[in-house]
Amino acid sequence: MPEKVTARGLWKSYGEVRALKGISFSIEEGEIFGLLGPNGAGKTTAVEIIEGLRRADSGEVIIDGERVRPGLNPEMKQKMGVQLQEAQFYDKIKVWELLDLFGSYHRRALPVRELLELVGLEDKANSHVEKLSGGQKRRLSLAAALVNDPELVFLDEPTTGLDPQARRRLWDLIKEMKAQRRTVLLTTHYIEEAESLCDRVGIIDLGQMVALDTPENLIRNSGLESAVTLSYAGELDLDGLKALAAVRALKPSDRQRVRVESTDVNLFLRELFRRFDDVAIERLERPNLEDVFLALTGKELRE
């Protein structure tokens, strides 16, 4: 896949605060790329430099082979769609008026009706923006980001502050963007969001990229172990269990349960069911990105 966006060595300071300390990554065409990190990690700064809203102290951004210069970039802006964190629209504008107006700024615009159907706001076309719920506003801002049928979409914390149901609805919309062959850069501090949406995730902390890979690879390569809690009736051959492949440690929790830590849980389970038939899996603990993040930065992701 060709590279859609390349960021090289981005540095940015605000006075004494170093927001970015040499971030580099590239986004392939058609993928959903996530920047995952706690609040204040530098995600928004990085995205806004790529969008051309801020000037990096050093480093460069290349989109479709062209260097992004902050300021007027009309051709670049024609193919970008942007959702900003916590941006608000005019209170008194009607939903269709907003999309129609934003569309008029671009050479190419999707029909308002199509946009509204896409985000499920068909019946809100004539509502004033101030009358929309939080989730509806967020969907409208997605529609506004798609108004020019962009090749490249930037979503800054698209679901922060939404209830789980509204969040899932938005995830479906973002997944649809991939189906529409758009390239998406999103930032988030939600693990599930990064895991369920992103093809690749860059973990960012204190202005530095600490890891970058697919969510699966990040977990697999983290060296973190999975754990299986088994329950059994009667006696269990603990020594035989310990001898199975990929077992690292056993921790009996009570007389009917044992927690097995494994370096390769699939291999272990295959072995287990070949040798033992009277055990049941009670709980399966797999490390997630949160654990990876904790292991990499020594920090909890959530505030």
């Binding site: 969008e51 051309g52 809203l53 007027l72 009309p74 051709e75 802006k77 024609q78 970008m80 942007v82 900003l84 964190q85 916590e86 941006a87 608000q88 629209f89 005019y90 934003f102 700024y105 671009h106 050479r107 506004a144 020019n148 930037f154």
Partner: peptide, 16 residues
């Protein structure tokens, strides 16, 4: 409009 970041959003669009 600046406080709401609406102007910032316009800054990402090809509006002169």
């Amino acid at each position: 409009e600046r406080k709401w970041k609406l102007l910032k959003l316009l800054g990402t669009m090809p509006l002169h």
